[in-house]
Nucleic acid binder design. Structure first.
Lengths: 366, 366
DNA sequence: TTGTAGGCGTTATCAA
DNA sequence: TTGATAACGCCTACAA
């Protein structure tokens, strides 16, 4: 046995693998077995608690493993298990503002099942994407999660049709609607914002938002329309102002609203950044928030929303949950379940001062 | 041979591995060999371009591999290579504002060497950290990169001393100063900011910054002092205002400065967020930027700096480079090199309008 | 030029 | 209760 173990030392150096760890390579189960005076098979059983073993043997093996600080090689284990217990995370929005929470949620779901995550920053480059997918398939990942920077459909990931790897999309859809995807419920978010503004007595509500080519923009607006129509409140087209995702556009929109002398008592903003621009422009013009105009944002980007004067009431997309659900769906598929279609995670209203729910009680609602 | 290949199908199901991919498991090199009518060894050589093979054989093997869309199992390859070609990424600042660029840089360095990244979000939890380190060691990662949310020293990662895994710290130091770490050169950054303000003719420069318990705060201040002293300009203690990393503190600081009737023609801000607060407060008071007071921030947080009125001159920490260098140092260690100590990546001045380099030319410097 | 055999570290089956 | 043995998928030295 001793000989067998030592034979490891005259193994040739791998061609591209340099001399790392070779001086004192990690102990193998053979070392443990030798030290405990048992066979490798027995050591394996002892360590994994399988089979019928004498208690004393089990303990000897454990002791040996502890002494050598033995950690079994997941590489070898996974080889026989036929799975890698890892999934690939393809991110398009290289660590942008939205990816963070989504990734955290995914990580959460995976951690619960002891799966590891391979991080791949695709950066919107098709070449990189193909390369990464190839690598991940070579690593025999159990599945793929694709995250995006926007919720619009994207061309599906090309994983060979031969031995298909399950794919779940998070904060982005596949253009093939059957592919499992998890996104925030933007329509419900829009509805939520408007219902809140109606609740606090506002009726002349404008919407300053991003470019209409974003699905999110269209869906939030749809939700807004639905809420207003349910309440029997009119929405003149002049009050819907799509533009850009920037503070500058928020400020500009205020110029427009003021120039046109539009009568408005609330603005639903398509993003917190837009809200910030609006808030600043209103203050410049001595228009009070929320007394004159109430504000509701979208994103709950706390570093912005909390610092605003007054702090911003906004819609939280529950991105962490979006990620977690995506992870859970992937795990379900890996476990043999069928998962199809887009799942929407509800948004949540975060009330702060900019919508003046407190102030409003004291004045007659319009 | 046929029999050997088919024997794969009566392999027992792994105990915890569900029925994924088993219906049509991926082709192995044996399938390729069979289809090409050669032995497994020959197929291996053909695919890897080793040994002396007849060109026609090589081509037949390649064709067979292509037909089966064969992708070699990295699991198996790495098992014989004795390396995983993967590194663990332990992030403390779960995808915060600073992690993004740092991670991108790390990813860059790794991608160049075909290494994969295991993502582990430690969330500042020691238990999670231990667990992840254990997992990563089990996966036999070639190394570890630890990123932080601030550059101050942290207790070193506990990787067993037995078969030590190389660790490099990025945007954080180990409390053991010999451990390899990569951080921005905050002192040089502070110097850069001040030299720029001096260049554009400012002399009464205040510093509004974060809590002094941050090493970054102390080092930036040190750089500021050095630059001023080199220029023979005085820095009264009353002009140094440590506080919090928030817009609110920026606004408050303006109150203080105005209340004390301090004569100031420039403010060096410890963060872009603080600068934003200062900028807003100055505008509220009709103090012009840069005409009355020039502003330089720190971070180059573009989404903020670009949207400011006027856009903010600021210091960029080159975080992506910090990450890249950290990755490269890890690779060097993996390759057998010795790497020790803290390496500082220079900051960079980003000139925008808030420091009024243009405006200033036209007025006499103070 | 090609095939055979042994081994990477682990687990599971079956025999002892 | 334990120990051989044969996989898992791949690579490489050596024999043919």
């Amino acid at each position: 046995l001793d000989h067998q173990v030592n034979s490891k030392s005259n193994v040739v150096m791998p061609p591209d693998g340099p001399a790392v760890g070779s001086p004192s390579a990690r102990p193998t189960i053979a070392h443990v077995a030798e030290r405990a005076g048992v066979s490798v098979g027995t050591a394996s059983k002892a360590l994994n608690g399988r089979g019928q073993l004498k208690e004393s043997t089990r303990e000897r093996v454990w002791a040996a493993a502890r002494d050598l600080s033995f950690v079994p090689s997941a590489q070898a284990q996974n080889l026989v298990r036929g799975r890698s217990f890892a999934v690939g995370l393809l991110t398009t929005d290289s660590f942008g503002r939205f990816s963070g929470p989504v990734m955290r949620g995914i990580e959460d779901a995976m951690g619960a099942e002891q799966l590891s995550l391979f991080l791949c920053d695709v950066r919107g480059d098709a070449i990189r994407e193909r390369h990464y997918v190839q690598t991940l398939i070579a690593r025999r990942v159990d599945g793929l999660i694709v995250t995006g920077r926007r919720t619009d459909p994207r061309t599906p990931i090309a994983v060979g049709a031969v031995a298909p790897v399950p794919v779940v999309y998070a904060y982005v859809r596949s253009s093939h609607p059957e592919d499992p995807a998890v996104v925030p419920d933007d329509e419900q978010g829009g509805r939520l914002a408007i219902e809140h503004l109606l609740d606090v007595g506002r009726r002349r509500i404008a919407h300053v938002t991003g470019p209409t080519r974003f699905l999110a923009v269209r869906e939030r607006l749809k939700g807004m329309r639905a809420a207003l129509s349910d309440a029997g409140v009119d929405l003149p087209e002049s009050l819907v102002l799509p533009g850009a995702w920037s503070e500058a556009w928020g400020r500009e929109a205020v110029d427009l609203i003021v120039a046109e002398r539009v009568d408005v008592d609330a603005i639903f903003c398509g993003s917190d950044q837009i809200a910030r621009g609006i808030s600043d422009a209103l203050r410049d013009r001595k228009i009070r928030v929320p007394d004159d105009i109430a504000l509701v944002g979208f994103d709950n980007w706390e570093i912005l929303a909390n610092e605003m004067r007054p702090p911003l009431t906004t819609i939280d997309m529950n991105l962490e949950k979006v990620g977690r659900v995506a992870g859970e769906r992937l795990l379900a598929i890996v476990g043999g379940a069928e998962e199809h279609g887009v799942q929407k995670v509800p948004c949540q209203l975060i009330v702060r001062e900019s919508s003046g729910s407190a102030t409003l009680r004291e004045r007659p609602s319009a």
